[in-house]
Write a protein that binds this DNA or RNA. Structure first.
Length: 258
DNA sequence: ATGGCCGAGATCCTCGGA
C-alpha cells in the first residue's frame, strides 16, 4: 500500500500536475495540504475519473486538507481538536489494513512566522493541543500514522543553511521540541529511519531560485508509531513534480507499506 | 552584495506562505 503526502499549494491551480502525479505513481492514498478552497469548489470529478474518492476539509483561500483514496475510507473526521483560529488543518480516517486498521492523520501545521507574534503563539498552542490529543488517542489505538506539512525543520541537516533559520518559526528550539515530544510518545520519523544522514528536502521556496540552487528544507513528514514500523518497507521523496511547469513549492513524499 | 515567487479574492493590491 502506497501512501503519499503533498502540500499542493491550491488543489485547483495544481490539478493537472496532481493528475499527472497520480497516473505516474498510482498511490493508494494521497494526503493533500493547502488545498486553498472550500468543498463546493473542490474538483471532485477530476479525482473521480481517476477512481479516487475524495474526503475534504476545506476553507476559502487558505489552508484546507483533503484525503483521496482508491478504496472508500471509514470514520473520516475533521474535529481532531478545536482550532483556535477556526482553520481547516487536520483530517483523520481509519485505514483497513491486514484484518486490522490504523489511524491516519493528515495535518497542515501553522507556519508561525514571524516569531514573537500571535502567529507564533498560535503555532505553539496548536502543537500543544495536538500532542495532548495524540497522547489520548494512543490509549485507544497504538497504530497511528501522522503525516503532512509539519512546518518543522527537525535538525540542522534538514535545511540548506540552518544558520539562516535560527530565528525562524520552522526551526526554533521550542518548535523542534514540540516535534520531539511527538517522537518521544513512540513515533519514528520515517525519512530518518531509512536514511541516517542523507540530505534531501521536500520544500523549495519559489523566491530566490530556491529549486535551482537546491536551497530547500525537509518539513513534510511521516511519523509512524512503533507497532506499525515493521510494516513500512520503504520511503521516497519524489522530486519529479517540483521540477514541472507550474509546480507546488512542495514535492510529494511517499511510503510503502507491506 | 542585492534581490529575485505564487495563489486567492470582497482582484489590478493585499495577505499569507516558509
Amino acid at each position: 500500500m502506497k501512501i503519499s503526502t503533498w502540500n499542493v499549494n491550491s488543489v485547483r491551480a495544481r490539478i493537472d500536475n496532481i493528475k499527472d502525479y497520480l497516473k505516474k505513481n498510482n498511490p493508494d492514498i494521497l494526503l493533500m495540504q493547502e488545498i486553498k478552497t472550500e468543498e463546493k469548489n473542490y474538483p471532485f470529478d477530476d479525482f473521480k475519473k481517476l477512481k479516487y474518492e475524495s474526503y475534504v476539509f476545506g476553507q476559502k483561500s487558505y489552508n484546507g486538507v483533503a484525503i483521496i483514496s482508491k478504496k472508500k475510507l471509514d470514520n473520516v473526521e475533521t474535529n481532531f481538536f478545536k482550532d483556535k483560529m477556526g482553520h481547516s488543518r487536520i483530517i483523520t480516517t481509519n485505514v483497513k489494513y491486514k484484518k486490522d486498521n490504523f489511524i491516519l492523520i493528515n495535518i497542515y501545521a501553522p507556519n508561525g512566522n514571524p516569531i514573537g507574534t500571535e502567529k507564533y503563539d498560535y503555532k505553539i498552542g496548536w502543537y500543544n493541543s495536538f500532542v495532548k490529543k495524540i497522547k489520548k488517542l494512543l490509549d485507544e489505538n497504538n497504530k497511528i500514522i501522522i503525516s503532512g506539512d509539519f512546518n518543522v525543520i527537525p535538525e540542522e541537516i534538514d535545511v540548506y543553511n540552518y544558520k539562516n533559520y535560527l530565528d525562524n518559526a520552522l526551526f526554533t528550539i521550542d518548535v523542534r521540541k514540540k516535534y520531539r515530544e511527538i517522537l518521544n510518545m513512540g513515533f519514528e520519523d520515517i525519512y530518518r529511519y531509512f536514511n541516517d544522514d542523507k540530505i534531501e528536502y521536500t520544500f523549495w521556496d519559489y523566491m530566490s531560485g530556491g529549486w535551482a540552487k537546491n536551497n530547500g528544507m525537509r518539513i513534510d513528514h511521516f511519523l509512524v508509531s512503533t507497532p506499525l514500523l515493521k510494516s513500512v518497507k520503504s520511503c521516497k521523496i519524489n522530486k519529479e513534480p517540483r521540477g514541472r511547469e507550474k509546480p507546488s513549492d512542495h514535492t510529494p513524499f511517499e511510503i510503502d507499506l507491506a
